[in-house]
Amino acid sequence: MAESRDTCPFCSIDPKRWIASSDAAIAFLDGFPIAEHHTLVIPQRHVASLFDLDVSEQAEVWRLASEVRHRLADEFGIEAFNIGVNDGVPAGQTVLHAHVHVIPRVTGDSDDPRGGIRWVIPDKARYW
């Protein structure tokens, strides 16, 4: 069952935590980051899936994700990123407010980064 706007942890994020925003989307640092500067980009409208948004809202979420990625690259010299969406509980979504993960990656943060997001199902990740 989807969280309501009243109980959604993303809908109550203090605007002081926002690192970027627009009329349709907000970006803020992940509260449980897997890498330094791990950022979430969410639509301002409370929906469980990005695909519940209209096309212009989806475009704005992705535009802000791109802005965040470029800003992190410029400010911190980050050269690589994983950009990801967990769309639905079986896909690992734990907060049922649509969001895009912008996860900086650096050389050496993983013994073997090949396969990237394919590791969500470890038995199928190694295809080489």
Results as ranks from 00 to 15, higher is better:
His46Trp: 10
Gly88Val: 01
Leu40Gln: 02
Ala91Val: 00
His37Thr: 01
Val89Leu: 14
His37Met: 01
Gly92Gln: 04
Asp23Glu: 15
His99Glu: 03
Leu53Gly: 00
Glu75Thr: 07
Leu29Asp: 08
Glu67Trp: 10
Thr107Met: 12
Glu79Met: 12
Glu36Leu: 05
Trp119Gln: 12
Asp111Asn: 08
Gln58Asp: 03
His97Glu: 02
Ile83Phe: 00
Ala73Ser: 15
Phe28His: 06
Phe32Lys: 12
Ala59Ser: 13
Val41Tyr: 04
Ser56Ile: 13
Ala24Lys: 15
Gly31Asp: 09
Asp54Asn: 15
Ile121Asp: 11
Val47Ile: 10
Leu72Asp: 08
His38Trp: 09
His101Cys: 05
Thr39Lys: 06
Gly88Ser: 00
Arg105Pro: 06
Arg105His: 05
Gly88His: 04
Gly77Phe: 08
Phe76Leu: 09
Val85His: 08
Thr39Val: 03
Val89Asp: 13
Val41Ile: 12
Thr39Cys: 12
Val61Arg: 05
Ala27Val: 06
Ile117Met: 14
Ala59Phe: 03
Ala59Arg: 14
Pro113Cys: 03
Phe51Cys: 10
Thr94Leu: 14
Ala24Tyr: 13
Asp111Ala: 11
Ser56Tyr: 11
Pro33Val: 02
Trp119Met: 02
Val120Trp: 13
Asp111Leu: 14
Val106Ala: 10
Val106His: 11
Arg45Gly: 04
Ile117Thr: 07
Ser21Trp: 09
Ala48Trp: 04
Val120Asn: 04
Val120Arg: 11
Pro43Asn: 04
Glu57Asn: 05
Val120Ile: 15
Leu50Asp: 02
Phe76His: 15
Gly108Gln: 09
Asp54His: 12
Leu72Met: 00
Asp112Phe: 10
Trp62Thr: 01
Asp23Gln: 11
Glu67Cys: 11
Ile34Val: 14
Thr39Ile: 03
Ile26Lys: 12
